[in-house]
Amino acid sequence: MLELRLVQGSLLKKVLEATKDLVTDANFDCSATGFSLQAMDSSHVALVALLLRSEGFEHYRCDRNISMGMNLNNMSKMLKCAGNDDIITIKGDDGSDTVTFMFESPNQDKISDFEMKLMDIDSEHLGIPEAEYHAIVKMPSSEFQRICKDLSSIGDTVVISVTKEGVKFSTRGDIGTANIVCRQNKTVDKPEEATIIEMNEPVSLTFALRYLNSFTKATPLSESVTVSLSSELPVVVEYKIADMGYIRFYLAPKIED
């Protein structure tokens, strides 16, 4: 028996919008820790890891660990039927091949339930080791989104370099080149507007902008984003989900052929 009641149902709607274009099918894992997901895109270049901790739910009942295979496009279709202010409850029974999403309007005058078919997904779970990163950049998520979008109109890849000067995003394409440098800036009104660069060692890595642009669909989940870089490691782009957990995207770098 599984019953998870999320008062801020819009979070789940936003999570689906952030993941459904990257991953088609995924197993949602439910345990005492929380509701989680780990899935790779079809080309095994990018990975999404989601955690919504059990404490973040108003009611969290998960009698035993359960994995539910869902088609994210279909799940998104169902969650789009929930209002932004609705409370969402996820219900499942042991051995059942369906999951139920229940939506309650804030004043309880409308209650809907949508039953979705589950699927068997043979997913590869990767072990992601804890790593020391050479540089960690925290910046406003809207700024990161803007940079990725702007650069993708010029080139297909971005070189992200962190030095003591700041973080530089560079691209080149048929029409020319572009460089955007963001310097550390802590003198802002709100902490989420700050750009904070922690650098242990300078680092420079190349990534496909197509994937980074896809990651920025998580922007509505958090006002700031953390980009962790280490040479010879996939970049981690993390959006914290207030009081609940995170959505992290991993992307393998491109190397000189």
Binding site: H44, V45, L126, G127, Y250, K254, E256, D257
Partner: peptide, 14 residues
């Protein structure tokens, strides 16, 4: 030219 690496080059199976 740049070659796209795969995640399996970095992360092992659990």
């Amino acid at each position: 030219t740049c070659k796209q690496q795969k995640l399996s080059a970095f992360f092992g199976c659990k």
